[in-house]
Write a protein that binds this DNA or RNA. Structure first.
Lengths: 260, 260
DNA sequence: GAATAAATCTCGGCG
DNA sequence: CGCCGAGGTTTATTC
């Protein structure tokens, strides 16, 4: 189930929704009449009122009022949430170890609530960065590996653009994803998604692969990779090549929209 | 209508919901497959993916992914939003003048969308602040006015706690609201709400007022007050008394939960 | 883990 | 409008 939406649910229905939402690692959204208590790096209280509550699968917890960009109360990623029913009210608790802090939301009435599994493989790309790295690799394809030949740039798939598409020395297709900073797990998920899209969609490359018995390789190119990403990488048979971004990367440049 | 909730709406239904939500000054929440472009203090693009979008009536605009407490893209308060339909996709635009910046969200598919008018009269109360001011006034009630006598602290009403309840020299009831910083319009709304709650609910104070033909006065106590607040204050017949918070306010103190 | 630096920092206050 | 300072800053990087 991709999402679930409840209008005017009672406390128990909401409890079940939150509980299953947390287990599914979904994003939970609630509009409710509530009261908030925070104890940790500071101590604060927010009396009864109607707010928007968001629980994210990374352990973030947000309570938004109808003003401001920042939440009025929150808990950072990696916090642990749980729900419980006390005296016919719903209590949402979020804890963190270091520093020790606790957020407690008491809910009296829920207007609507939902959980949703968001498919999102994209990271925000600030202008200029990946672009510079791509330029460098198009210019010097041997940086990636001996005999690599780029065939397309920003190749469109259903879920976004493959940074560089190319062939290796044996004629296998290579799907290259560039990151100018240490690659995280999302970069690997992104390549995995592209490989899937690529294999599911008919295209000239795919015909060639099938007819000539060639492989499709996934290759992540970044200055470094973190532990989580490395694990998934090996699990998925995706490769990694350490490449530092060009040095002028950090220089201030005038960027305009036309680079897209 | 307090809120409206649409499941799996088409682009035009969503457009109508957003349009009326903005006019009603409601908070709008959307879960959708979208793409984001930002141009302003920086330049960024976020390719297609499923995200949570929130538009607030103060002009804030948030795009949340399923990680982090900060939005991946946003626009600050006082931005101007509008929706339009282009080639069967829904476009949400948000502009700001100084600095000039623009956020553009292109939406292809909406899973669910809502607007909601949140009743919320409370501001976050950080421990120690109002408390210190209250202590000072309980100790020296003449600071507020000659002959003022506190009768209750944190007096409970339906919509929160009245900071100090007391009597003036003529025996009229005084509802006192404390702010340790410059009071805004919300402080006045809060007193107005308390006065209403107080008058609607039976209690001993109210009986006394009725039997002895006394008045109920609203009094805002803060170091200063802004123009908006002053206007509403006079309109509502609520009074204001300038009082600076105690100087030790900023000192680090050990605070515990029992102060609430 | 702690320490450090950047951020479309945000938010409030004051001139 | 601007600058300045604080924040439960958050976030990523380095050690």
């Amino acid at each position: 189930m991709k999402y679930k939406l409840l209008e005017n649910p009672d406390i128990e229905e909401t409890y079940d929704l939150i509980d299953s939402g947390i287990r599914k690692k979904a994003v939970i959204n609630i509009f409710a009449y509530c009261k908030v208590l925070y104890e940790g790096r500071a101590l604060s209280q927010l009396d009864w009122g109607e707010r928007f509550i968001m629980l994210k699968p990374d352990g973030s917890f947000l309570v938004h009022q109808e003003r401001k960009i920042d939440p009025v109360n929150w808990q950072p990623p990696k916090s642990r949430h749980r729900a419980l029913i006390k005296e016919n009210n719903l209590i949402l608790e979020s804890h963190r170890r270091t520093p020790k802090e606790k957020l407690e939301v008491e809910i009296e009435k829920v207007h609507f609530a939902s959980f949703a599994l968001a498919e999102d493989y994209q990271e925000l790309e600030l202008a200029g960065y990946e672009k510079d790295m791509g330029d460098m690799i198009i210019k010097h394809p041997n940086m990636i590996e001996q005999g690599f030949t780029p065939t397309a740039r920003e190749y469109n798939t259903e879920h976004g653009f493959i940074d560089i598409l190319g062939k290796d020395i044996e004629g296998n297709i290579v799907v290259v994803e560039l990151k100018c900073r240490k690659a995280g797990i999302n970069a690997v998920k992104q390549i995995r998604r592209y490989l899937k899209d690529f294999e599911e969609n008919d295209n000239d490359y795919l015909k060639e692969v099938k007819s000539k018995k060639k492989k499709i390789r996934g290759l992540l190119v970044a200055p470094d990779i973190n532990e989580d990403a490395k694990e998934l990488l090996e699990e998925e048979g995706i490769e990694f090549k350490a490449v530092d971004p060009p040095k002028e990367l950090r220089s201030d440049k005038k960027v305009t929209l036309d680079i897209f």
